[in-house]
Amino acid sequence: MSLATVLSLFLFQTPPAQAANVTIEGFRNKEGFAAISVFHEREQRAFPGEAAKAYKTFYLPIPQNKKIEIKLDNVPAGKYAIALLHDEDGNKKLNTVLGYPREGFGFSNNPRVLVGAPDFSKCAVELNDDSLVNIKLKYF
């Protein structure tokens, strides 16, 4: 095998798939559902509000214990940020009053949120073998 062939196999190899375990806690009730959007760094400009451009989006019911645990399998290597909405009325959008959220929200890395959504860079996590991502919901 030539050096060029070996280099091309190495350079054009698909990065290995990764997995992540995501735990979400802090739901104030079981109303509505959890909208969970996972954004790859390629879609960081869409983060956090354009769920249609996310790598994956889940709409899950809130369980009795108010804790959601999901496993993201076969995720391409890279940086990701997760945005979460506790959509209590099921309208698939964040309800606000005077610009402040009226429903729960959260992000990977649990950044401090005062005004507006955090940047992708503050929420980005590098996924590697069995990463653990814990998100705590916030309510105003």
Rank of each mutant, 00 (worst) to 15 (best):
A4E: 05
L7I: 09
S8V: 12
L9E: 15
A17I: 15
Q18K: 14
A19L: 05
A20I: 08
A20K: 09
N21S: 08
N21Y: 06
T23I: 13
G32S: 04
A34G: 10
A34Q: 10
A34K: 09
R42C: 02
R42L: 12
E43R: 04
E43G: 00
Q44L: 07
P48C: 11
E50R: 15
K53E: 12
A54F: 03
A54K: 02
Y55D: 06
T57L: 09
F58H: 00
P61L: 11
I62W: 01
N65R: 06
K67E: 07
K71E: 13
L72F: 07
N74C: 04
V75C: 05
P76K: 04
Y80W: 01
Y80V: 01
I82R: 02
I82D: 07
E88M: 01
G90T: 02
K92D: 15
K93I: 03
L94G: 07
T96R: 12
V97F: 14
L98I: 00
N109Q: 14
N110D: 14
N110G: 06
V113A: 03
L114Q: 14
A117M: 10
S121Q: 12
C123A: 13
C123R: 03
A124T: 01
V125M: 14
E126M: 10
E126W: 02
L127W: 02
L127Y: 01
N128V: 11
S131R: 07
I135K: 06
L137C: 06
L137G: 00
K138H: 03
Y139E: 10
